[in-house]
């Protein structure tokens, strides 16, 4: 099922949660809504689900207007950040809930429901746990039950609100892989909300980057990461270092260097803001053209050496190198030479 938002506006009192958002999710697509808190991503998801209603604008599913369609008639599966499992029901009863509240003529028989529950417990890798209560499960298990419950009604659209937000890092990574596999098996059009860029880039077919109630960019993970359309997107993705610079006819002037601008649509001249990601630096001796810094700390715990440096005005610059030069000791002066820079006019 395709789903689209057309010029959706939503205000809560004086706060504008969504300021005219338009968006299309394609059939079978896995779409991420990515942005900082307060960017309107959860509001948009809730409006798609029919749990909130827009002040103006339209949601369409499969081309059909959803304006007057309450949540219970939309055929949408919704997964909550805090699971929202019914605590007084067993796992099996939770999963069966959506089927058991159907009108009698549409309701599957008891044995059919039980079979469906078993099938879903297998899909979410919790076989044999149907008799447990939610309180007896771990966070990751609860979220898998919540997903099974949402999938039980064979939704036309699956919406997930920060599905891994309440879980610890290790569980989160496992569940992410697993969710991708479930999506590939079910092919339900899915939209999930996250503020975790790594999660969005890792999981989604396309990423929608939102900020302050507007969409900044829509693109594949590769596009939004490599060709951020706006300074916000560039700043939000990839822990970029931020510098003031000058723009001159497609080139970037930074620390006495003149570099090509890797940002798309680099036009105009004048003051700009430049972003350099930690791995996009080379190191040169002090006095060379580039960004003059003092090394404060160097850690070499992973595959890369991470250099925490300070500019003369005290701002911190982070660089990561495949191998840390051994002449570098804390307090040493050095120059960071950007290899790739993305700059935007201000």
């Amino acid at each position: 099922m395709t789903v689209s938002a057309e010029n959706v506006v939503k205000r809560f009192g004086a706060f504008a949660a969504l300021e005219g958002v338009s968006l299309d999710a394609r059939e079978g697509e896995f779409l991420a809504l990515l942005g900082p808190s307060g960017s309107g991503k959860t509001t948009l998801l809730r409006i798609m689900a029919g749990l909130d209603f827009p002040d103006s604008g339209t949601i369409r599913m499969g081309g059909v207007d959803m304006d007057d369609r309450p949540a219970r008639e939309r055929g949408v599966g919704f997964v909550f950040q805090h699971y929202a499992l019914f605590r007084h029901m067993t796992v099996a009863k939770n999963i069966a809930f959506g089927l058991s509240v159907r009108p009698r003529r549409d309701r599957p028989s008891g044995t059919a429901i039980a079979a469906r529950v078993e099938e879903l417990l297998g899909l979410v890798q919790l076989p044999g746990l149907g008799g447990r209560y939610p309180a007896q499960l771990s966070g990751g298990q609860r979220q898998r039950v919540a997903l099974a419950r949402a999938l039980a009604v064979e939704p036309r659209l699956l919406l997930l609100d920060e599905p891994f937000g309440a879980l610890d890092a290790k569980v989160r990574k496992d569940l992410r892989r697993w969710l991708r596999a479930v999506h590939e098996a079910s092919h339900v059009t899915s939209v999930f909300v996250t503020h975790d860029q790594e999660e969005a880039l890792d999981l989604a077919d396309r990423v929608v980057v939102m900020n302050a109630g507007r969409i900044e960019q829509v693109g594949t993970p590769h596009e939004v990461y490599q060709r951020p359309a706006t300074a916000f997107v560039c700043d939000f993705l990839g822990n970029a270092n931020r510098f003031d610079c000058r723009l001159a006819e497609g080139a970037v002037e930074l620390g006495g260097l003149r570099l090509a601008n890797a940002a798309p649509a680099a036009t105009g001249s004048g003051a700009g803001v430049a972003f350099v990601r930690p791995h996009e630096f080379d190191v040169a001796a002090a006095g060379e053209p580039g960004v003059a810094v003092t090394l404060r700390r160097m850690t070499a715990t992973g595959a890369a050496a991470v250099l925490e440096c300070a500019m003369p005005d005290g701002r911190i610059v982070e660089a990561s190198l495949p191998v840390g030069p051994d002449w570098l000791v804390p307090g040493a002066a050095l120059t960071l030479v950007p290899t790739t820079v993305r700059a935007y006019s201000v």
């Binding site: 749990l51 949540a71 219970r72 008639e73 909550f80 929202a84 019914f86 509240v101 919540a146 949402a150």
Partner: peptide, 21 residues
């Protein structure tokens, strides 16, 4: 309100939501 919203999105009516959740 999460439980009630979950019930609604799963297709429960207002009365079913109240009585069962």
């Amino acid at each position: 309100r999460d439980d009630e919203e979950a019930a609604r999105s799963l297709g429960a009516s207002g009365w079913q939501t109240f009585a069962r959740v």
